[in-house]
């Protein structure tokens, strides 16, 4: 099979399109690169959805943790502690077990109508179940980062806001939130990178692969299993991830530029590419 042919056959295999059977004999490097790249679609999907939704939930969590009211603060603190304090590997496993038990757990699920009964079944699928776990996980990590940023907003900024008579939502939207984001952005970039790396755990612990549709690591594992040679597929995955990490860094760098656009050039905080957060 030529390289172009294997591209046509397997480029979208991870979504169930193209050739049904995975390559079995005479596996070429081309096929490995194409299929592993195809699996990368899932990694990007998991990371994008979890980050997008997690961003908003994390903001809410950070505000709750910063609140005076213990009814808001305590649950937020516990949520963040549980998700930051335990390995994602174990979170995936427990979530999967819980999702599997759900339909049996209560009658109310079937009483609420067909739609709801059907939707609990989808929770055991990676596209929904794993995304939920990743979403909760990244929310906890990002909330801690945002909380730290909230605490370090310069006092003068807030006093100035008060002096201008800004209150409530208006004060939050115009002053607190943009400043918090600006301060948190370098750390949040790291979180995004690590969340992306963490997506490789989805099919590795807990969630099963359906119809051989999996992520980059799933296919690398498949090839290592078929060719009995781990030294080709795993470095391919590694290469893909190094590339994607660079893409994330430049995307977040662009947003960082926008967040700091009002500052004079020399005062702009250069995004520090310090990756010191994983789960």
């Amino acid at each position: 099979m030529s390289c172009w042919e294997s591209f046509q056959a397997y480029a979208l295999r991870s979504l169930g399109l193209g050739e049904r059977l995975l390559p079995k004999a005479d596996i070429t490097v081309c096929e490995q690169v194409v299929l592993i790249g195809s699996g990368l679609i899932w990694n990007v999907y998991f990371a994008a959805i979890a980050l997008l939704l997690g961003f908003f939930f994390a903001t809410a969590l950070a505000m709750a943790k910063n609140a005076q009211n213990p009814w808001l603060r305590k649950p937020a603190e516990w949520f963040i502690f549980v998700f930051r304090g335990s390995p994602l590997f174990i979170q995936f496993f427990l979530a999967y077990e819980a999702f599997v038990l759900l339909p049996k757990a209560g009658i109310e699920f079937s009483l609420l109508g067909i739609e709801f009964g059907a939707s609990t079944r989808w929770l055991t699928r990676a596209w929904l179940g794993a995304t939920i776990v990743l979403f909760l996980n990244t929310s906890a990590y990002a909330a801690e980062i945002f909380y730290g940023a909230l605490r370090s907003i310069p006092k003068g900024d807030l006093e100035a806001a008060d002096a201008y008579g800004l209150t409530g939502l208006h004060r939050f939207r115009r002053i607190v939130w943009p400043t918090m984001l600006r301060l948190a952005w370098p750390a949040y970039t790291n979180e995004a990178i690590f969340l992306f790396h963490a997506t490789t755990l989805v099919f590795f612990s807990g969630f099963p692969a359906w119809k051989q549709m999996g992520d980059a690591l799933y296919y690398a594992n498949y090839f290592a299993d078929k060719t009995f040679n781990p030294f080709v597929p795993y470095p391919i995955v590694a290469g893909f991830f190094v590339l994607m990490t660079l893409v994330i860094i430049s995307l977040f760098g662009m947003i960082n530029k926008r967040l700091n656009r009002h500052l004079p050039k020399q005062k702009r905080r250069k995004i520090a590419l310090r990756l010191n957060l994983i789960r």
């Binding site: 590795f204 692969a209 359906w210 119809k211 051989q212």
Partner: peptide, 15 residues
């Protein structure tokens, strides 16, 4: 696993 993949059934793989 290889056998199921080659039949018409939907294969689900576990570790």
């Amino acid at each position: 696993a290889s056998h199921v993949a080659s039949t018409g059934a939907t294969l689900v793989e576990f570790a």
